[in-house]
């Protein structure tokens, strides 16, 4: 079968690529577009390391066919900071040591940003349930949850 030609917008830039019909969005991001910030922890939608947003909705890119991105707006971890200026979540993760090995971090950040975009004042329980699809084996989640809550508060105070 011949390859599909897909036009999409990734992190604000128009992007075109060819892919096999069965290729996942994660495979295309990592193997064809060199956007390796999205990680594959399971390939089955159970770990969240591959989290991206598509037209603003949080999804596991390992569960999405690349061909489905035609005409859509994709955001990945690579688009989160503004040049050298880190997103407040990224900054807070560093300050509060919310990562150890860092493999879950891109997915956590993308998911946490999607939460704060939707709900700027989440409770601890809301953060915990929102991030329940993002596995972290290193931290026990404590510092991650605190970093998300502290960022939310900081953003609210600035606004």
């Amino acid at each position: 079968m011949s390859k599909l030609h897909i036009s999409t917008i990734i992190n604000g830039e128009p992007e075109e690529f060819l892919c096999e019909p069965e290729e996942t969005m994660l495979d295309v991001l990592r193997d064809r577009l060199s956007l390796t910030g999205s990680k594959e922890g399971c390939g089955s939608g159970d770990c969240g390391a591959c989290s991206i947003t598509v037209d603003g909705s949080l999804i596991c890119s390992c569960l999405m066919l690349a061909a489905e991105s035609e005409g859509k707006k994709i955001e990945t971890i690579e688009g989160m900071s503004d040049g050298e200026t880190l997103h407040p979540l990224q900054q807070k993760f560093l300050e509060e040591a919310a990562l150890q090995c860092g493999i879950c971090t891109p997915g956590m950040l993308v998911a946490a940003k999607a939460l704060l975009d939707e709900n700027p004042d989440p409770t601890e329980t809301e953060v915990r349930f929102w991030l329940a699809g993002n596995l972290c084996r290193c931290t026990g989640y404590d510092k991650i949850v605190r970093a998300v809550l502290d960022t939310a508060q900081e953003i609210r105070e600035i606004k």
Binding site: T36, K39, E40, E78, L94
Partner: peptide, 22 residues
């Protein structure tokens, strides 16, 4: 509680893990 030297790469997706090179 200093900021880790490898931190910026890890929060921006730039850190290269085992499967990230070609």
């Amino acid at each position: 509680r200093t900021i880790r030297p490898d931190g910026a790469d890890k929060v921006t997706g730039q850190a290269t893990f085992g499967a990230d090179t070609t």
